[in-house]
């Protein structure tokens, strides 16, 4: 295997803390926030993260496949979660300590509950509005009620962090600047 070549493209409006482990070809979109101690590993293919995502501390994003791992906009990856899915849509919430295997593709508006292990052996697509919960990774569909409020909270959360994080943490810039 060839050595991993590092190439970080970080949008000027993204907030990426210094204490973040990045490896491989990574693109981070505008307004995305990466908390300290998060890890983003592009082992085989590149990782492209959209705008307005929040990646909290000790969250791990890994791409083991050759293809591009695409993460949409306004996703929230909470503390200590581990995501290897080849594609993630928009406005998803991956809760604390959840684990999603590389066989799962996540659409939009999905919620993976706290501590859920989502590791199917065959390929699976989480449809829009799917909620995964409990120790057996049961699934239900969310009616979509309170979606606007949820999106509003996410937007304000990101806005707050964009203002507060640079006051207490050193930031990291991309290669271009």
């Amino acid at each position: 295997m060839p050595p991993i070549r590092d190439k970080f493209t970080i949008h000027s409006k993204a907030v990426v803390c210094q204490d973040v482990e990045l490896k491989g070809d990574i693109t981070i979109g505008s307004g995305t926030i990466v908390h300290p101690k998060a890890t983003i590993f592009a082992i085989a293919g590149p990782i492209i993260i959209g705008s307005g995502c929040i990646i909290e501390e000790s969250a791990i994003l890994v791409n083991r496949r050759k293809e591009v791992m695409r993460i949409g906009d306004d996703n929230l990856f909470e503390i200590g979660c581990r995501i290897e899915s080849p594609s993630v849509g928009n406005s998803n919430t991956i809760s604390t300590r959840a684990r999603v295997h590389h066989t799962v593709r996540i659409s939009s508006y999905c919620v993976v509950g706290a501590g859920v292990l989502l590791v199917p052996t065959e390929d699976q697509v989480l449809e829009d509005y799917t909620v995964v919960y409990g120790p057996a990774a049961e699934q239900r569909t969310w009616s979509g009620r309170g979606k606007v409020q949820e999106a509003d909270l996410r937007r304000k959360h990101a806005e707050y962090l964009r203002e507060m994080l640079p006051k207490f943490n050193r930031l990291r810039r991309g290669d271009g600047t």
Binding site: E57, I79, D152, K156, H157, Y160
Partner: peptide
Amino acid sequence: VTLSDRPPYKTYRGNFNY
């Protein structure tokens, strides 16, 4: 080991706060 201690957040009267 990674352990995390962080304050909770919510919006109250339209303002986001931890």
